[in-house]
Design a protein around this nucleic acid. Structure first.
Length: 576
RNA sequence: UGGGACGUCGGCAAGCGGUAAGCCAUCGGACUUUGGCUCCGACAUUCGCAGGUUCGAAUCCUGCCGUCCCAACCA
């Protein structure tokens, strides 16, 4: 998979790309400029990756550019640490905003001037209504006797008809800090009877004495999204402002402010697409923040989190996420993508790129009875059968090995072709061995060790006589193995739709408390001793693992990114 | 007496009046020194429902039904 995001799906097509192509051919726009507008109040998750993929992808496909603009107009929630985290994640995903790193907070002065311009047109006014009163005056959606939702007209604020001069003066004094927080707002003068509630004189500025992470205490008034966003787009010269469906109802407002602001001769155009939902995941910054704050997860980058940082730590690659985005498409249908598609994407990439290695998660001693005491052999193991250029390595073999507990059965279930008394199995890249016996703790019934004899003629695992050996299992030499910790993950939420919870039930309580399993007593072949955080491997027959930053010298930790497809598990399930 | 959208296979999703792409999942089978990978095959006579227009409709019209979003001085 290429590291260059623009290299994939050159002929991608969807309703947005169709619209952009049409806009170009009709001459509505000469070139394409999009923007990715995060609010720095949380970390990016895979839902944002969809928006990123569309914003940067559409721009790239049409030879345009995509700006990174932080929509930072709510000082209460925003923070520089989020800006840094967001930039890191976008860059990691492979998207490049070059020098176009913008902040809505850099436009404060310009936006203020635009507000003044709109006031001068008589299209905005300073209102003294409280938040509650404003809501009351606006009117709301209410169910009538037949439980049909209706929206009666709102009524004008008594301050709606202040003169331009008065509004200008009041607005200036708002900025100057002459009024207490919340006592006045600047409102667009649109239509208090509009069927779309958002058009009923929406607020443009509120008074809030809250230090801003970038502008400090310079401002005590802050612009609202509906005013700020379209005008920031216009200021930058954005052509296509692509956003999610929930903003569809904001579009008339978007267009209204663009028109009133008269910033650009080619007004930006907003187009909406359906946001991403993935089964077993919660994709909402607000909910993710709660998981972090409640300590349910270890942080924004907990490997179970759908955040880009979490997926990164889990072992997902940027290319696999981009591939996923290209497969789910872009449409306007509310949808729930099966998490298995995401897992398929990472498996497909890692199958090609991850070196194979042997590790035993739940060790069981295997003694090779006819192996000479003290003898050690270095056996050749292929690093990646999918990629010969990865070469091979040496793996030590000796008398006492560890194998996976699951790979031995005292009484084999149907169709089981691993180790059981009398059965023959291949030790991968080692020898073909025959199970000669086993030890068992009489009090617990636990298998304590398995014994076997090896066939010296089968070095490397070859069967010179072409005998059929159905099973091949992985192993590690007890004397040479290194101790590792493995962390196995399940979905944080067992439910396909975690937010669909019975009334009165807190969704957080539906979390699977055992969604992370630490396997402390695992062993791996010596080559894994040099693994560095972020390195990815396939533990043969187990799954893909990524070395975690928690690793210490001599004590590596591996996160299971995803297991291998497991046909045996299906056979077992069917049998039971 | 609301407004804005959306309904094509279990999950995504093409299709834009000419007779249902593809992907994931699933189920068979081949191959296999990973019960992995790969390969081959199966998987919507039908497009929310009902009418209508047409030689012909998932595509056009009408009416129903269903789902989502909107009542923050958040974005």
């Amino acid at each position: 998979m290429s590291d260059d995001p623009s290299a994939k799906s050159p002929e991608a097509s969807d309703f947005i790309r169709d619209a952009v192509a049409e806009d170009l051919s009709s001459g509505r726009y000469k070139s394409v400029m999009t923007r990715y507008p995060p609010e720095p109040n949380g970390w990016l998750h895979i839902g944002h990756a969809k928006a990123l993929s569309i914003d940067f992808g559409v721009a790239a496909q049409f030879g345009g550019v995509c700006n990174l603009r932080f929509d930072d107009t709510n000082p209460e929630k925003e923070d520089m640490s989020y800006v840094e985290a967001i930039k890191k994640d976008i860059a990691w995903l492979g998207y490049d905003w070059q020098d176009r790193e913008y902040f809505a907070s850099d436009y404060y002065e310009r936006l203020y001037d635009l507000a003044v311009k709109i006031i001068k047109k008589g299209h905005a006014y300073v209102d003294d209504l409280t938040a509650e009163e404003m809501s009351e005056y606006r009117g709301t959606n209410v169910p009538d006797k037949n439980n049909i939702t209706i929206t009666p007209p709102g009524k004008d604020s008594p301050y709606r008809n202040r003169t331009v001069a008065e509004n200008l003066e009041l607005f200036a004094r708002m900025r100057a800090g002459e009024f207490p927080d919340g006592s006045k707002t600047l409102r667009a003068k649109i239509d208090m009877a509009h069927p779309n509630l958002l058009m009923r004189d929406p607020p443009m500025y509120r008074i809030r004495r809250e230090p801003h992470y970038r502008t400090g205490t310079e401002w005590c008034i802050y612009p609202m999204y509906d005013f700020q966003h379209p005008l920031s787009d216009a200021i930058e010269g954005v052509s296509h402002s692509l956003c999610s469906l929930e903003y569809e109802i904001h579009r008339p407002l978007y267009d209204w402010f663009v028109r009133e602001g008269e910033v650009s001769s080619t007004p930006p155009r907003q187009i909406e697409f359906a946001r991403l939902n993935i089964s077993h995941f919660v994709l909402s910054k607000r909910w993710l923040l709660r998981l972090v704050q409640d300590g349910v997860v270890s942080g924004w980058d907990d490997p179970r989190m759908p955040t880009l940082s979490g997926l990164r730590r889990r072992g997902y690659t940027p290319a696999s996420i981009r591939d996923f985005m290209s497969r789910i498409g872009v449409a306007k249908t509310d949808s729930l993508v099966d998490v298995q598609l995401l897992e398929h994407c990472i498996r497909e990439e890692l199958n090609k790129s991850a070196d194979r290695v042997m590790a035993v998660l739940h060790p069981l001693r295997l003694v090779v009875e006819n192996w000479p005491e003290g003898s050690v052999e270095e056996l050749e193991a292929v690093n990646n059968p999918e990629d010969p250029s990865r070469g091979s390595r040496k793996v030590p073999f000796s008398k006492v090995l560890y194998i996976e507990r699951e790979d031995f059965a005292e009484v084999p279930p149907p169709k089981y072709f691993r180790l059981f008394p009398g059965n023959m199995v291949r030790l991968r890249y080692g020898y073909i061995v025959t199970c000669t016996g086993f030890g068992k703790d009489p009090s617990t019934g636990e298998i304590t060790e398995v014994r076997c004899s090896y066939d010296p003629a089968t070095k490397g695992g070859d069967a010179p006589d072409n005998r059929k050996v159905k099973g091949t299992i992985h192993w590690v030499s007890a004397a040479h193995a290194i101790a590792v910790e493995a962390r196995l993950y399940e979905h944080l939420f067992p439910a396909e739709r975690p937010m669909d919870v019975a009334p009165g039930v807190d969704w957080v309580t539906t979390i699977d408390a055992s969604s992370m399993e630490r396997v402390a007593g695992a062993f791996a072949e010596p080559s894994l001793g040099s693994a560095k955080a972020g390195d990815r491997f396939q533990f043969e027959r187990l799954g893909y693992f990524c070395c975690d930053p928690d690793s210490k010298p001599g004590a590596p930790v591996f996160n299971r990114t995803v297991g291998l497809r497991d046909t045996w598990a299906k056979i077992e399930k069917k049998g039971s």
